[in-house]
Amino acid sequence: MKQNFTVRQGALDGVAVFLSVAQHRSFRKAAAELGVSPSAVSQTVRMLEERIGAALFVRTTRSVGLTEAGERFLSRAKPAFEELVAASEVARGLGQRPAGLLRLAVPRAIIPILLEPLIASFCKANPEVEVELAASKELVDLAAEGFDAGIRLGQFVAADMVAVPLTPPFRLAIVGSPGYFAQRSPPQRTDDLRQHACLRWRRSDGALALWSFNDNGHAVEIAVSGPFIASDFPTMLGAAIEGMGLAQVPEPLAAEGLRAGNLVRVLDAYAPMMPGVFLCYPDRRQIMPKLRAFIDHVKSRQASDGDPRETS
């Protein structure tokens, strides 16, 4: 059965004063410790007693003692208050220096090409920060799921998010393996894709993503068909390398395969430009030092690499 309860406004008011009086058994010594007048201490204790509904101290002209109610209140209030003070110190520490757990929601595809070197150097520079990468294709609610920030393609960054560029804009590349093209002629126009096996990507909402093109400055989307559907770009790219068909993937993902000769690029003239990859977080006013340190580290790395994104 659910219990009904309320917390009175100002329930902790006067507790610190009570603990000081109880420790010193003196209103005057408590006042000196707290930097207030004895009358202010006496008034605060009276208000606490009225709120509780019981006398906490026995006062004489010569001494101050605890009542039974005061003893019981002290036994429970002292450790609880000390725990609250300790909790405040821990929270204050996280609010004043880069420390604690930095949780980032990221697409799995970008971890090896973008985050691995960045995270390694960040952790070395900030030993009090632990970094957790939660790889998912879902566009999670960052605040509701307890993430400090997310990393997303620019077209998926919500308008109410603060966004910091991690990469410059890039194109979507259509690639296939040399083995695949040994059996078929490379497409010359987008209409030629009807004659090709096109590997597809299923979005987190369940829909199959259309292929995007830039046709003389006009954005065009085409539904393609093929033998394989993946839920992320690395899997689709791997299938393309194995010769299963053509894949449309972000240009940075295909770069290594193109350099190694495992992939061939086609339809370059129709490749659309994407905004790039961004670090995004909900509210600039609520940013913690650990996230600020990560953002500063990103910008520092970009500046040292001569990247124009440093002025984001």
Rank of each mutant, 00 (worst) to 15 (best):
N4F: 14
T6G: 05
V7M: 08
V7S: 11
V7L: 15
R8D: 10
D13Y: 07
G14Q: 05
V21W: 01
A22L: 08
R28F: 07
A32M: 13
L34M: 13
V36G: 12
S37E: 10
S37R: 06
S39W: 09
Q43L: 15
Q43E: 15
R46T: 15
M47C: 10
E50R: 02
I52K: 15
A55E: 13
T61K: 11
S63L: 14
G65T: 09
G70A: 03
G70L: 01
R72Y: 04
F81N: 02
L84N: 06
A86C: 00
E89Y: 06
E89C: 03
P98V: 00
G100A: 00
A105G: 03
A109F: 05
L114A: 05
A120P: 06
C123K: 09
E128K: 10
E132S: 04
A135Y: 00
K137C: 11
D141K: 04
A143H: 00
G146R: 01
F147A: 01
L153N: 12
L153G: 15
V164K: 01
P165V: 02
A173R: 13
A173C: 11
I174P: 03
S177L: 06
P186S: 11
P187L: 10
R189F: 13
L193D: 05
R194Y: 11
R194C: 11
Q195D: 11
H196C: 06
C198W: 04
R200W: 05
L208V: 12
S212L: 14
N214E: 14
N216H: 10
G217E: 09
A219F: 15
A219V: 08
E221D: 04
A223C: 09
F233N: 15
M236L: 13
G238Y: 08
I241T: 09
E242A: 15
A247G: 08
A247R: 02
V249G: 02
G257C: 11
L258R: 15
A260S: 15
V264L: 14
R265P: 03
V266W: 10
V266H: 06
D268S: 07
D268W: 02
A269P: 07
P275D: 04
F294Q: 05
I295Q: 13
D296T: 05
Q302T: 05
D305V: 10
D307G: 06
R309C: 05
E310C: 14
T311N: 11
